[in-house]
Simulated scan of single mutants.
Amino acid sequence: MSNHKETTTRTLVVALLICLVCSVLVAGAAVALKPIQQANRLLDKQRSILAIAGLSQPGMSGDEIRALYDKRIVARVVDLRTGQFSDEQDPETFDPLAAAKDSRLSSALPDAQDIASINRREHYSTVYLIEREGQLDTLILPVRGYGLWSTMYGFMALKGDLNTVTGFGFYQHGETPGMGGEVDNPRWVAQWPGKKVFDEQQQVAVRVVKGGVNPQSPDAIHQVDALAGATLTSNGVTHLLEFWLGENGFGPFITNLRAGEA
């Protein structure tokens, strides 16, 4: 009986030691790999920004992406509460998505305002500028909102007139492949350049329409065909654009920037 107890105790001790060693190895690997993971996430974001701006080419290496980004893109932080540029955060390190989860750096959205279903909106966000001869050529805005199954994360690029779309797309989502997942289909994405996001009253007019765009309609300049069989995902795209281009998103900033007061 005594030998049996000693064997059981020895087995438990060995198992515990193995668990502790494995935990230390896993924790060590996580710490060691964290800088690499952060660098890869930053590279993916830079790649997406350049692609939306139409600046990158397929097959570019990581070093080429970083060099092109540093040469052409200027990141600036915007205070969404005031619609003004802000120096309160470092645009190269600030993470708006992490800030949205921090009650000190974000605000809960009332249901009536939360048309994109993001729950909280960060106080600060990062925008990306492309300048040419000292003038704004392209403004790239981060956007996100809920589709059918997931939050869709993307960027919208506007010309210097701050109304004409030059590029739009999502870099992360969990929508249904072949249906809502077609938000990253190049053929659907190709419909966006040239569309106008605001109407003559400067209200957000851009939207995804079910049944296809009527090219004879005066509203066609604001519209893109809905995704076949993906009504909720299509509606989600419309809602997230209404939010981020509207008064609770980047709307005040765009107004100030257009007036030279940002």
Results as ranks from 00 to 15, higher is better:
A27Y: 14
L25P: 10
F85T: 07
L139Y: 15
Q216Y: 02
F94N: 05
V209W: 05
H173C: 01
V77E: 07
G194V: 01
V204P: 13
V78S: 12
D102K: 04
T176E: 00
S150R: 12
L12C: 14
C22L: 15
V78E: 10
D111N: 14
F170Q: 13
Y171L: 02
N248D: 15
K159H: 15
V183I: 10
T7E: 00
T166Q: 09
E182D: 12
I49S: 05
L136V: 05
V209C: 04
R66S: 09
E133C: 11
T126V: 11
T255P: 15
W192I: 00
T138H: 13
E175I: 02
Q89V: 07
A157T: 02
E261V: 06
G251P: 15
V14K: 00
Q216F: 05
A190M: 10
E247A: 09
D95C: 04
I115C: 15
G54C: 00
V189E: 08
V189W: 13
D111E: 14
D63H: 13
C19F: 12
K5Q: 14
I36M: 01
P193G: 09
G169D: 11
P96D: 03
T11Y: 03
N235M: 08
S150L: 03
L43V: 01
L42C: 09
G194R: 01
T9Y: 10
T176V: 02
I115N: 14
E242Q: 12
A30M: 13
N214W: 09
V13C: 00
L17E: 01
A259M: 13
V237I: 11
G154F: 12
V77H: 08
D184F: 03
A228Q: 15
P218Y: 06
Q38C: 00
K210N: 11
I18Y: 02
I36P: 12
G147P: 11
K71S: 08
L129R: 12
A112M: 09
D87G: 07
Y69P: 15
L158I: 07
V209G: 01
V26I: 12
D219S: 06
F168Y: 11
Y153A: 07
R10E: 08
L240A: 06
V77N: 08
L109R: 15
V183S: 04
T255A: 14
T151A: 11
R187P: 12
L80P: 11
Y128A: 01
G178R: 00
D161A: 13
D95Q: 03
T7G: 01
F198S: 01
A116E: 10
M1I: 03
N235G: 12
D87M: 05
V127K: 07
A15H: 06
V204T: 11
G251F: 07
E6K: 04
V165D: 14
